[in-house]
Design a protein around this nucleic acid. Sequence first.
DNA 1: CCGTGTATTGACCAGTCGGACAATGAATGA
DNA 2: TCATTCATTGTCCGACTGGTCAATACACGG
Lengths: 201, 201
Amino acid sequence: MPGPKAPEETRREQIVTAAYEVALRTGIDGVTLRAVAAKAKLSHGLVVFYFKKKDHLIGALLDRVLATTAMLHVSKDVARIPHAPERLGALLRQELDRLSLDPRGRRLFFEYWALGVRRVLIRRRIGAALERYRAAFRAIAEELLAPANGTDVTPDALAAVAVSLISGYALQAMIDPDNFDTGAYRMAAQSLMERLAPTPA
Amino acid sequence: MPGPKAPEETRREQIVTAAYEVALRTGIDGVTLRAVAAKAKLSHGLVVFYFKKKDHLIGALLDRVLATTAMLHVSKDVARIPHAPERLGALLRQELDRLSLDPRGRRLFFEYWALGVRRVLIRRRIGAALERYRAAFRAIAEELLAPANGTDVTPDALAAVAVSLISGYALQAMIDPDNFDTGAYRMAAQSLMERLAPTPA
DNA sequence: CCGTGTATTGACCAGTCGGACAATGAATGA
DNA sequence: TCATTCATTGTCCGACTGGTCAATACACGG
């Protein structure tokens, strides 16, 4: 006995939301058509009705993951800092702080990253997200490195290093929180970044 | 018709080797009892005969992965460098170079990393490997930071940062090699590390 | 030469997965 | 009011999974 109608576009979002919740608890592997349907209180047939292939569903789920966890907004407070090195350090700290709350989303991001190693479409989208992430840092890096042009550090590389500091933090903190002193790490990373400015050496 | 006997302890290694080859090509998901058995030219029943549970097999496979890819040997050339900052930079560069060749093993390592997020036993072993990796850097970091004790950077944090630079490099380079300038990154990372010494500031 | 233990096989099982599909219900327009 | 459209359901299917197990062939000690 087919149930009531709710043919709004909401259905897709509802399903993706259910998938997201499932993924948070059980990982991408746990995102099965039936598990998602159960979480959304639908028949699993309906899920494949909206997303013809399961891959499409996990693609849509990737959108959700990227939207909620891989976006970088430079807060007003940070943007207002005049001195470029300090601004870079502050941005770094802001991101590290953000990482500390709700690590579950980040876990999903890394799971997708691992998936991307084998699947081209996912790899491209994650790569693009990383590139956008780097771009935000690159802007500051250019400004910072402008005076000390004699240096062998390019803005692009500096941005990549910043991203490394952030993702490396997440990676290490996730895998053994016990042996990882997050406070000390943040101090060190920030101080390292800010130390770039004074002497181009 | 049960085949010939070869009851040596070699069988286990042979199976793990087959599993490793399968994993390199198809990822950990592809490591199925039957796939491994086929690769090793055995019946899948024999695989479960040696490794009672599949988990034991993927545990043994993790050993293999860690042994071949997560070990850090400080080469003689590097160890002989007297000046600590330069030594740290050289070690960093050595590891980054090593990452460039044969990324397949590293991919597996990161796949296990993602797996570790959900599975406790794997998480602990990866965490331990990571800690050993950090320890190698910590030794140099202590020596490096000794004179400039006024600094807010602890040896532990510096080691963690070094690991971040390495894993972050792998992360970004593997996912989109096109937009990632490996050469510039290596220059920047090394120069950043070596810049730690001169002025404790 | 013959049992005994064990390495090895293949068949089998229950479970789960993604996907196809006919049947059914509800809304909608004529 | 009735036919049409389409969202929704449950069922069914084939493939594959991890795991069990009886049957078998081999090596070896007596």
